[in-house]
Amino acid sequence: MRVEVLKPDRVNGFIEYCRKHRNEVDDSFLYEEDLKEFTPNAENPTYIVLDEQGEIIGAASLIIDEYNRRGQRARFRIFHSEVEEPDIYKELLRGLLKHTEGLRKIYIFIPLNNQRLISVMTQLDFSVERYAFLLVRENSDVLEWSIPQDYRIQSFRSGVDEKIWSEVRNAGFAKLKGNETPVTPEMVAKMAEGNDYLEGGMKILYHLETPVGIVRGADDEYEGAPIMNIGPLAIIPEYQGQGLGRLLLRASLQFAKEKGYHKTILSVNGENERAQALYVNEGFRQVEGVACYEYIFQA
């Protein structure tokens, strides 16, 4: 077996490997649209493991895009081996670390039922930064909701609201683990141009003329069926604790129902107990859990 950097003539094999094993790992960046656009480069350093016949039996790839680099970090796209040997993971990690100059950490989400990989990460000196949970709701009835006086909900306007959206999101998530890095108006613009964009799904809550909250409903798939993904949902600190998050959640659930979705899905950080309680009270149930493992570079 040998570990080598992914070269252009092996990209198709790498993509097939990702397809084969994406159900065993966090597949957030292993959807078909992600794999279709994948290119090994400075933003996507990638290594593969080859057996004696030259077949790919392992792969590791980092995402070091503009957003992650601003946060001085990199996220794994995949970190997997068909052979249960810690030394293989060590060699893959050693290769990737050559591409992390200027960063302070790399991180990976691992499903809690993947005990094999969790054991490997512990041996590689990764530690748990946080937990996150995936929640699903059957779109039956949406509880009644009404907009308080002096408030209004307005649909996102492309080319107009990118700065407003990013400012509200950044204020609301400033202290939320894993989301501290601000998003830019340019990133919001790309969000509104994505294949998962739903017209009217991005909403902004105003108090008089002040934008105080946002929510996004996007097209997604779960267990082979269409589903609407809710997130981000954020309220600026000065307006939190007033039931406005519940208001935006119900508005998004109503939107999903109008669009014909039978289910909605969202993710929540484990330490965000207030949000978890809100979602459970609104009919969501936990279906999956993941641990975010991080490897922090020594100063």
Results as ranks from 00 to 15, higher is better:
E223S: 09
T122I: 14
P148S: 09
Q298M: 12
K177Q: 14
A291Y: 01
G200N: 07
G213T: 01
A174F: 12
L134T: 15
V128R: 08
E162F: 03
K90C: 05
E209N: 15
P8I: 01
S127M: 03
V83D: 09
S119E: 13
G224E: 10
G159M: 01
A132K: 13
G102H: 10
E238W: 01
L208E: 15
T100W: 07
F14W: 12
G200K: 04
A42Q: 13
S81C: 11
R274M: 07
D9Y: 13
N113F: 14
N170D: 08
L30C: 00
Y222R: 04
E37S: 13
P111L: 00
R104M: 11
T264N: 03
Q298A: 14
R73E: 14
A256G: 14
E180L: 07
I214Q: 05
P8C: 02
E180D: 10
E85I: 04
L96T: 13
N179L: 13
E258M: 07
L278S: 07
G194Q: 15
R157P: 03
Y197V: 07
S81D: 06
L208T: 11
N23V: 01
L208I: 08
V290C: 10
L124W: 10
R104I: 09
D65R: 08
D196P: 01
E138S: 14
A256I: 00
R70F: 05
A225Y: 08
V49K: 02
H99Q: 12
R116A: 15
P232I: 06
R274K: 13
Y151N: 01
L143F: 12
I56T: 08
V11E: 09
Q115I: 13
H262M: 06
Y151D: 06
E271T: 11
E52V: 14
H207E: 13
R2F: 05
Y131L: 04
L233A: 12
Y222M: 02
P237A: 01
T184V: 07
N44G: 04
L35Q: 04
V83S: 05
F79R: 04
G201V: 03
A225Q: 14
Q240C: 08
G58V: 00
F173L: 09
E4R: 12
G283W: 02
M202R: 05
I110P: 08
V5M: 11
I88W: 02
R10K: 13
I265D: 00
T181V: 12
D161Y: 07
L92D: 06
K90T: 11
K7I: 11
F79H: 04
I235H: 01
K257D: 10
H99P: 09
E4S: 12
Y206K: 10
N269S: 13
A192S: 15
N44C: 11
Y279E: 05
V128Q: 06
G217V: 11
M187Y: 10
A59K: 00
E24I: 03
H207V: 00
Y89L: 04
V11W: 02
L6F: 05
Q242E: 13
V287D: 15
S28M: 06
A60E: 02
L266E: 01
F126Y: 09
P182D: 04
I265G: 00
V25H: 00
T122W: 14
R274C: 00
K7P: 02
E101P: 06
Y31R: 08
L124R: 07
V49N: 09
